[in-house]
Design a protein around this nucleic acid. Sequence first.
DNA 1: TGTACATCAGTGAACGCGCGTTCACTGATGTAC
DNA 2: TGTACATCAGTGAACGCGCGTTCACTGATGTAC
Lengths: 226, 226
Amino acid sequence: MEGTIAAPKPAQIRAPKQLRSRRTLERIVAASLELLETEGLTGLTVHKVVAKAGSSVGSFYARFDGKEDLLDYLGERVWTEALERWEVALETRDWSTLSLDEVVEGSVGLLIDAQRSRSDYLKALDWASGRQNDAYERFRGELLLGLGRLLLGQRKSITHPDPELAVRIGLRAILGTVDAEIRATEDRLDRDSLAAEARTLLLGYLTGNASPAAQPIGVDFFDVWG
Amino acid sequence: MEGTIAAPKPAQIRAPKQLRSRRTLERIVAASLELLETEGLTGLTVHKVVAKAGSSVGSFYARFDGKEDLLDYLGERVWTEALERWEVALETRDWSTLSLDEVVEGSVGLLIDAQRSRSDYLKALDWASGRQNDAYERFRGELLLGLGRLLLGQRKSITHPDPELAVRIGLRAILGTVDAEIRATEDRLDRDSLAAEARTLLLGYLTGNASPAAQPIGVDFFDVWG
DNA sequence: TGTACATCAGTGAACGCGCGTTCACTGATGTAC
DNA sequence: TGTACATCAGTGAACGCGCGTTCACTGATGTAC
């Protein structure tokens, strides 16, 4: 729970200079994401992508140096967009006026919604590739860092002897629970129950007070994820 | 948290009938696991495997119908072995005489050691393939199921209004934390600190009593993972 | 113990497919005067 | 407005590499009498 995140990693492509080629690029990106979600990483071939996008291999290589670059670019796009939404979600509210209880509730909600909104991509690319995860790790790092700061803002209310450690462990625990629920194929807990349990868990760990949720703040308030 | 796990899935190969070919098979398995850990799933090709194993493609296809079968077989081997160790670990002790506190401590230790011992394989194959995870999911399911039963054996000490749910969520949270720690490349928490925090977290969630670890049972007691 | 035969095990050159990538070419858009 | 030229965009046949897989063959081990 320190400094900033690893290297930026450009993910550079030859930028389109006309509207026409920008559209082609967008079609290629869209086709790639679709293929990733339907057929997984193995099904993602350059030929299939350009066929689905109604383009051609030549056009593809006019933008990207190779397939590798496509993967980088996709990750970059998906996660920077997620990051933007995330920042909006954080800035929407003045967290300093809230109690720890409320911060926990808000954090848990944000975390759940953020992960849920990317679950398709997660399943397709990140849980499946094991290499192209840089952008995701960065996003995940930002989530944990941002929420960690929020929670540590309520430091006086945290009774755990090592608040930094507690926040780090506690957030990871919740993130793990959320990921597991998202991956689950059956008996999936609905969002609000999940949020309530995660809140109880985190609050109990931080303060030693695990009383069940008093009065939910209202979950939709935090919902900025399509 | 119910019934038993999905379909068995045979992962059948043409069994060796002489010592010589059994040895060859073992060399192929060992070489595959090594390649998986050093070069990842992409680096695992039949030619490389047999070269590293000091065998030949013909020998390979005498055992396996194809590469797909190798993956199945590897997963089967790794996780059934893990499962056997796991069962030994469970049966080593009479859990019914322990308090909830002790059961939590023991469970947490088992979970951590089980996951840590497989972390290389997890990184190489399961977090990287996204398809061959059946065997791992089965193992993971057994972990959660077995520990869930243990914890629910102390049902009276659990104050959470829905003990089944609490156990399920709580265990997933810990598993998530452990996975995250294993994946971490820097600032990795040492095993005992991780165990202590996980214990506090789980116990607090289940009972509302998050007092820091009174007296560790002795972590080595549960250590059956090389 | 020896001989004949069947089965098991191992070898590596060869094949073919699919993939990523290149390239010579045509067409569209922008710019200079 | 028109003409000439440069740059951008797009096309798809072709190439070559690496991979999974096959196959004809040699050698080792087991079995029957």
